[in-house]
Simulated assay, not measured.
Amino acid sequence: MNNNTINIRAIQHYMYCPRRFALLEVNDDWAENSFVVKANIQHQHVHDGSHSYSDSRKIVRSNIVVYNDEPVYDIFGITDCIEFIRSSEGVELSDQDGRFQVHIIEYKPKAPKEHGFNETDAIQVFAQKVCADSIWNCDSEAYIYYSDIRKRVKLPFDTEYDKYDLMLKNLLSEMRKVLEEKRIPSRKKGQKCSGCSMSDVCFPKEKKYCVRDIVMSQKGADIL
């Protein structure tokens, strides 16, 4: 990896708010709230090894590092879960007998109310697919498992590959521009910040202007 290599998890930060992305990646700022902690706990459970097993039908592995070092992508990340399903129409794996279809499973805590999946979640998983397809020379299927509804949703990469591929490439180009310029973008118009763990870091609260405090400080007095 080089200085331009992007961690897949950073893509969602950028899509949610470029300013948040820059604070994390350029300034190395970080803050947590209840939403972040809940998501971290879920992913710790997914990555603890208990989701890894094998049977006669499939091999399931969690916490797999994937990457794609083609210059147009140059990304890496850690998958929640990959299922290798035995199939005569699948691909060969270097350390296994037989052929397998590759399924990527991403775990998310809460499903959207109005759509089958969040677009920000989908592009994250598409980036994982780009990596998996490169590593195993396959055309992997991708799913999001939403814990609150206990449902697995298939992502439409088989019919909308070009759409997501263009979206990913554009996002990566924009992100690299921010990183190269080392700048913190302004907040987007209409950006919702109430649920963001970085809101206090992004816009620290300033003490209100007070003439009394200024006068007293000039006199060298303690301000109570």
Rank of each mutant, 00 (worst) to 15 (best):
E180M: 06
V178Y: 01
S194Y: 11
S194F: 11
E180V: 14
L166S: 14
S197D: 11
E181P: 02
G190S: 07
R187P: 02
R176T: 05
D162H: 13
K192E: 05
P185I: 12
E180L: 10
M175Y: 01
G195E: 10
G195F: 08
V178Q: 00
R187E: 10
V201S: 11
L171Y: 09
S194N: 12
M198V: 03
L172A: 10
D200A: 15
D165Q: 12
R183Y: 01
Y161D: 10
R176G: 05
G195Q: 09
D165H: 12
L171E: 01
V178M: 01
M167Q: 14
R176W: 00
E160N: 15
E181K: 13
S173W: 00
Y161W: 14
L155M: 08
P156T: 13
K188C: 11
M175V: 05
D200R: 08
M198A: 05
L172P: 07
L155G: 08
K177W: 00
S194I: 09
E160G: 01
S197F: 03
D165Y: 04
I184K: 03
M198K: 01
K192Q: 12
L171M: 09
R183D: 07
D165S: 12
L172R: 10
G190F: 03
S197N: 05
M167C: 06
L171F: 06
L179P: 01
L155P: 07
K188A: 13
L166F: 13
T159A: 08
K188L: 14
L168Q: 10
C202T: 02
C196E: 06
M198R: 02
E174K: 15
E174Q: 15
S186G: 15
R183V: 15
K163P: 02
